[in-house]
Amino acid sequence: MKASNVLLLPGWQNSGPDHWQSLWEAAHGYHRVEQHDWMRPLRGDWSARLEETVLDADGPVVLAAHSLGCILTAWWAAHTRHAAKVRGALLVAPGDVERPDLAAQIHGWVPLARQPLPFPAVLVGSRNDPYCSFERAEGLAQAWGTRFIDYGERGHINAESGLGEWVEGHAWLRELAGDAA
């Protein structure tokens, strides 16, 4: 799979320079789906941007989503006519936007899409994620029909988790892309 067809979907506030998504972008040339407003995410705008990017891609794509990017993936997949272009999705540490404290900060993302994803996916959840309980992550994986990986106590599986380039996660992405050795 071409590097430009691996789409990185950061969450709220984007992914900083030490985040595994940013490190993958720098090391492998993957394509970050740039949103118009990282601080005040609007589900319709983010979905439209993902739709444009998937349609513009030269061939099938693989999605690597973090946090709100996971919620975006499920919403987009439930509403697009172009899900067949997605070969697979790595969904990491979904943010629970239905939780009252997060819903107050991130408006307009409720309800969560709970339909099974129309493409293969892996959801990686942490037992001590401050933005989504382990049980909730497991439940989303079940609703979306994804393989679930219990990643132990790794926080929000971001730069603060000390993952660096996150070789293990990259191997799961490559499997989904059909590039595994």
Results as ranks from 00 to 15, higher is better:
Ser133Pro: 00
Glu135Phe: 00
Thr73Gly: 01
Ala3Trp: 03
Ser161Cys: 08
Arg174Gln: 14
Ala104Glu: 15
Leu72Gly: 02
Asp18Ser: 13
Arg174Cys: 09
His170Gly: 13
Ser133Met: 02
Thr80Met: 01
Met39Thr: 14
Gly164Asp: 12
Gly169Ala: 11
Leu23Ile: 09
Gly59Met: 03
Ala65Gln: 06
His79Trp: 01
Gly152Cys: 04
Leu117Ser: 06
Glu98Phe: 11
Trp172Ser: 00
Thr53Ile: 04
Val122Met: 10
Ala113Asn: 01
Arg114His: 12
Phe134Val: 06
Val61Trp: 02
Ala180Tyr: 15
Leu163Asp: 00
Met39Leu: 13
Pro130Ala: 14
Gly162Thr: 03
Val62Glu: 08
Glu34Gln: 14
Ala65His: 02
Gly169Pro: 09
Gln105Asp: 13
Glu153His: 12
Ala57Arg: 05
Ile71Val: 15
Asp56Gly: 06
His66Ala: 00
Ala180Glu: 15
Asn128Lys: 07
Ala177Thr: 02
Ala121Leu: 11
Glu135Gly: 11
Ala181Val: 13
Glu168Met: 04
Arg136Cys: 07
Ala84Asp: 03
His31Tyr: 04
Leu72Pro: 07
Glu34Tyr: 00
Leu90Cys: 09
Pro120Leu: 09
Ala180Met: 15
Trp12Met: 08
Gly162Trp: 10
Asp150Phe: 11
Arg32Ala: 03
Arg40Met: 12
Met1Val: 08
Glu153Ile: 08
Asn14Gly: 15
Glu25Asn: 03
Val62Lys: 00
Gly178Cys: 14
Ile106Met: 11
His156Ala: 13
His82Asp: 01
Ile106Asp: 10
Val62Ile: 05
Val110Phe: 02
Glu51Phe: 01
Glu138Tyr: 04
Phe134Met: 12
Gln115Ser: 14
Ile71Cys: 07
Val167Pro: 14
Glu135Gln: 08
Val62Phe: 03
Pro100Leu: 10
Ala143Ser: 14
Gln35Met: 06
Leu42Trp: 05
Arg147Asn: 03
Trp76His: 02
Phe148Trp: 06
Pro94Arg: 02
Arg154Tyr: 08
Thr80Ile: 04
Asn128His: 06
His19Val: 08
Gly95Asp: 06
Val6Trp: 07
Gly11Ile: 09
Leu173Cys: 13
Val54Cys: 03
His28Lys: 13
Gly145Asp: 07
Thr80Asn: 01
Gly108Asp: 09
Arg81Trp: 03
Thr53Gly: 02
Gly44Arg: 05
Asp129Trp: 11
Gly44Ser: 11
Trp12Val: 10
Trp109Phe: 02
Gln21Phe: 08
Tyr131Gly: 05
Val33Gln: 02
His66Met: 04
Ala74Thr: 04
Glu51Trp: 01
Ala113Ile: 01
Arg154His: 13
Ala143Phe: 09
Ala121Thr: 12
Leu23Pro: 09
Glu135Asn: 06
Glu160Pro: 00
Asp37Met: 09
Glu135Met: 00
Thr53Arg: 14
Val124Arg: 14
Arg154Asp: 05
Thr146Ile: 04
Gly29Val: 02
Glu160Leu: 12
Arg49Gly: 10
Ala26Ser: 13
Val6Gln: 05
Ser47Thr: 13
Gly44Asp: 15
Gly164Ile: 08
Glu168Thr: 12
Gly59Tyr: 04
Ala180Thr: 13
